[in-house]
Each structure stands twice: as C-alpha cells, then as structure tokens.
Design a protein around this nucleic acid. Structure first.
Lengths: 215, 215
DNA sequence: ATAATAATAAACTATAAGATGTAATTAAAT
DNA sequence: ATTTAATTACATCTTATAGTTTATTATTAT
C-alpha cells in the first residue's frame, strides 16, 4: 500500500529536499508539491492524498488554518507539521486543527522518513523540542478524576439542581424564579447543601462543586 | 553517547525478545532486566539508566505506579510504555505518571528500535492504536484561551491578588487577615474588582476569574 | 508641579444570606 | 394499613456580610 504525499512548503529549496528524500522511499507513491496553503487545498481536493507534510510559516493563509481545512475535508489524512516554530501555542493549535505529528526542521532525514511512515500507520510523533508541551497537556487532561476521587455528598435531585444554578452565579432570588418556588424554599435548600458539602457559604459550595465535578 | 536501557517485563519470553533486539543496536549500552516493578526500582536506584521500557501488567505494583516512582527519582529518564492495554484511562494515567511514549506490543521491532532512539533524544511517540486518545486530550487542552481570548480587565496587582483569594473561597475578613489590611480596604478592593469584571457579586467574580483564567 | 493611578481605610446601609422550625407530600418498610 | 423516613416546601428571624461611597495618602507618570 503506497502512500501519496503532499508537501506544503513555500521555500523551494526545502521543498526540493523533501521531495528528493521521499522519492527513494518504497512506501511512498505520488509526491505532490504546493508552495502555499491555497495551492495545497486545490491539490488536496483533486487528488487522493494520504499524508500532508505542512510548513507553518506560509504566506497569506497559514499552515494551521490549512491543516484545519484539510482535516475538515478528510479526517483520515495524516498531517505532519514540519516547522521551526516551537512555542506552545503553535504546537497545541496545530494539534487542535488536526495534526498528527510535529517535527522540527532540524530533524534527521532518516528519522523523518520513519516518522512519516509510522504516522501514516496512525501513530503520533512529537519532536524533542516540543514533546514536553504535549506531554504536559495530556498530563493535565482531566481523566479519571471526575468525581470518583471524592464522595458525591448524597445531595437530593433538587439540591443538585440548585447547586448547579449556584455554580452559574445565580442568587437565591434568581434560583427561586428559575424553579418557580419561593426564595425561602431556595434558602432552605441552600442551607442543606452547605451542610452536606461542609462549607461556610455559597461561594465555597460553588467552588467545591466545580472542583469535584458534582452537579 | 550510548544509552543504558532497563527492560521491565514479567514474561521471560518477551523480556528475552526485547533484550535480544536491543543487544545488536549500536546506540544501546548496558541492558538491565527486571521481572517486577520492585526489582526495577531496585535496579534503577543503583545504576545509571537512560531509558526504561515498561510493561503495564506487572504483578503486585503495576507499571503505572512504577513509572511514577521512577519519574520521581529522575525526571530525565525516558520511559516507554510497552503494553497490550489500550484504554484511555491507562494511556492518560501513564502519561501523567511521566511516560514519554506508548507502544503496543504488536509493534514491529525495527520501529520499536527507532522509537526508543528518538524517545531517548527527547521525542514523544504514540502507537496507532492509542494515538487518537493523546491527540484528543491535547486538542481539548485549554491553551490559547487562557485570558488571551478575552480582555484581562486590567486589574491591579492587589486586586488580582484579592481575586485569587476569592476564588479560593475566602471571606473579606479572611482576606484582610491574610494580607494584614483592614476589612474595609478589602471591601473597597472587592468593589473595584466587581466593577471591572462587570459582575454583581463575589461569587460571579470568582467564577468568571476561574473561567477566563484571570488570577 | 500636576495629574492620574493605586492602596488604604472608615462610615454607612441594606439586603441577601443563612439558621431554625415546621408542614405537606411522597416513598419505603413493617 | 400504618408507621417511619426522606424530600420538598415555606415563613420568620437575625445579623453579619457584603457592597457602596467618600476620603486620605503614596506612588508614578506627564
């Protein structure tokens, strides 16, 4: 199964280097070249392309927008960012846009070929210069902790409902109107919530609710 | 610069296969072997190890805990998870624990060698079977929006400081004590904060501060 | 110098919040 | 069928907590 590659890179020299590198690789089929994002989209729409190697610093439409556009057309296409930019924002925005790998231009060519091949198979790869950004971002991702860590404070349905509204910043009056009950009732519920959550006031209740993903 | 590798794997067969694979690789120095997490930690503490290849399904202490323990001892050590588990929780918890790469045991040996080498250089690599988990997690990561999207409400340093304390659920009295100023002063600052954030009360202020990552 | 901004504070007000007790309604248990 | 417990609901009360306003001093910029 040969893979067709689209190289998006405005500098002819680099483009030529890339093309030459991949020409001799056995898993590579047709190699397309684009010097701008616009050209890349045109080529992408009219050909069957498996892998895109994308520079970020392009004239007019930038590489991140191009990545997003391509990703929206075909989510199966693997997009490899190849750039010298390496700040956190660029990296994460690329990934948000749909990139599967992020390479520095300093990369060794043989390694680049390996990366392209494994990314074509579905892997994700991140350059040493930015790997920490990705690792930190995933480490921060909130899986496993939603609620499970702490007790769920057996609130009644109504209490949970009111707590939810509290986390949205509503006053007792507003909550009462929302639920079409008296303010007094709302207050009673709130009092009960405060007790159950073992906090002093509604602010702390709301914060705790958000922190532990109650509601 | 040769790299020393520690293989942590309870099945002798797999361990032997790994060892044999890496024995002939030129960037590899000494290869250590452990059949359990406990043994691995023992070896790790007493030797200079650059790369750990870690199985997740170990007896007693599991691979994730072992990863965490090793990472805490030396954050420079690169840890490659090699496993057949591939559910989201395992993957993300591994990365939280400090892993740098995640491989399936179905991986082609030559590719594994490439992965180990590039991870040794600082790269991050994720197997096709779980790459989407990592990519989604990073895509969700909230970078780019912290503050930048919205105005930063030019709070003064003091105001920001007080807002921070508000987001931790402190009352005006408590804030005053913390900062060793009068409650009245605190109130004045709070009033100013409410105005600048265009909200009605401290609850809303705290919520907004958290949402937009002010403070 | 002068103006503007920030930090501090006191006095004032009020209302919104929270505490407490109780009644009506529903569900579970015997 | 009857009791018990739990949930929802409401009113009254009190106060202290929050927020407003105005003012003084200190710092910084023009």
């Amino acid at each position: 199964m040969k893979k067709n590659i689209l190289i998006v890179e405005d500098h002819e020299l680099t483009r030529f280097g890339l093309k030459t590198t991949f020409e001799d690789v056995d898993f590579v089929g047709v190699i397309y070249e684009a010097a701008s994002a616009e050209e890349a989209l045109e080529i992408f729409k009219n050909n069957s392309i498996d892998i895109v190697i994308m520079d970020l610093g392009l004239p007019n439409m930038n590489g991140i927008d191009a990545t997003q556009a391509i990703h929206e057309i075909n989510k199966e296409t693997k997009i490899i960012i190849l750039t010298s930019h390496n700040d956190e924002k660029e990296v994460l925005n690329s990934l948000k846009a749909g990139a599967n790998a992020y390479c520095s231009k300093e990369i060794n060519l043989q390694r680049l070929v390996n990366v392209v091949q494994s990314v074509a198979d579905g892997a994700a790869w991140f350059d040493p210069s930015i790997a920490h950004i990705v690792l930190q971002a995933t480490a921060k991702s909130d899986v496993g902790e939603p609620n499970t860590n702490y007790k769920d404070y057996d609130l009644t349905a109504r209490e949970a409902q009111i707590l939810k509204l509290m986390t949205e910043g509503y006053s007792n009056m507003e909550i009462a109107q929302h639920l079409v009950i008296s303010v007094n009732t709302t207050k009673a519920h709130v009092a009960s919530i405060l007790q159950k959550l073992e906090v002093d006031d509604r602010l702390q209740a709301a914060l705790k609710a958000l922190k532990y993903k109650i509601v």
